[in-house]
């Protein structure tokens, strides 16, 4: 469970100061599915980085299961990320020189999983996203949708508590978008994880049970009864 209390993130560039997040309060229960929307530069990605322990707030608390991520050392934060949080990025962020299977394995490396086990689990994760035949393919040999599915497999192979997706369909066409959203939704349901996604896509936002909108660092959350 996430609890964000008065989270502020301030960026300073020269004499100019910008509050990407300005006193955000937000609670996300375990197993929730939250979609975050908002204009470009509104603070969506910054919020996601706070939730993922990739960055620390200037002020406020980001509490995950009772631990304030803002107060953790870099090493402990790294541990939290490696064990509990899966990331999916808009640009897939696969390692270009590694095969699909090896890319998925990179998520298990920090957990100290043995090589054989690591390979099996990576292969299993790729099968679960429909890429069982593409284990030895390099990212450059796959379509955008396939690459994003590899990225999803990489995020989920360690069975995290939280899945954070930053515009996962932003670089995909419509059919690919639906395909990826189907995979993500299925995984969320199957694994019972907390799924937080940033998107510009209104069609996706409409289907979300909870929709948070960020404008100028301020957040408003709306429950969607129809979803």
């Amino acid at each position: 469970m996430y609890e964000l209390k008065s989270v502020t993130k301030r960026y300073t560039r020269g004499k100019e100061t910008v509050d990407a997040l300005a006193g955000v309060d937000l609670t996300i229960a375990d197993g929730d599915r939250l979609v975050i929307q908002g204009p470009t530069g509104g603070g969506k990605s910054t919020l996601l980085q706070m939730l993922g322990g990739l960055d620390k707030p200037t002020a406020g608390e980001v509490v995950l299961d009772g631990t304030d991520l803002a107060r953790l050392s870099e090493a402990k934060l790294t541990k939290v990320r490696s064990e509990n949080i899966g990331f999916v990025f808009q640009s897939f962020n696969l390692i270009p020189t590694l095969t699909a299977q090896e890319n998925v394995e990179t998520a298990l490396v920090p957990l100290g999983v043995k090589v054989k086990d690591r390979r099996e689990r990576a292969a299993e994760a790729l099968k679960s996203v429909g890429l069982g035949e593409r284990l030895a393919h390099l990212p450059s040999e796959m379509s955008g949708g396939q690459q994003q599915r590899v990225a999803i497999a990489r995020a989920l192979v360690k069975q995290p508590k939280v899945l954070l997706a930053d515009e996962p369909t932003g670089n995909l066409d419509e059919s690919m978008r639906d395909e990826i959203m189907d995979v993500l939704e299925r995984m969320w349901k199957e694994l019972g994880l907390t799924f937080i996604m940033v998107t510009h896509d209104s069609a996706i936002a409409k289907k979300a049970p909870r929709l948070a909108t960020i404008r100028k660092g301020k957040i408003t959350v709306k429950e969607n009864a129809s979803s």
Partner: peptide, 16 residues
């Protein structure tokens, strides 16, 4: 940068 940033996001320590 993106490659190493991604690995760190996945939980790779700076030392690794």
């Amino acid at each position: 940068v993106r490659e190493f940033g991604t690995l760190k996001a996945l939980g790779w320590r700076s030392g690794r």
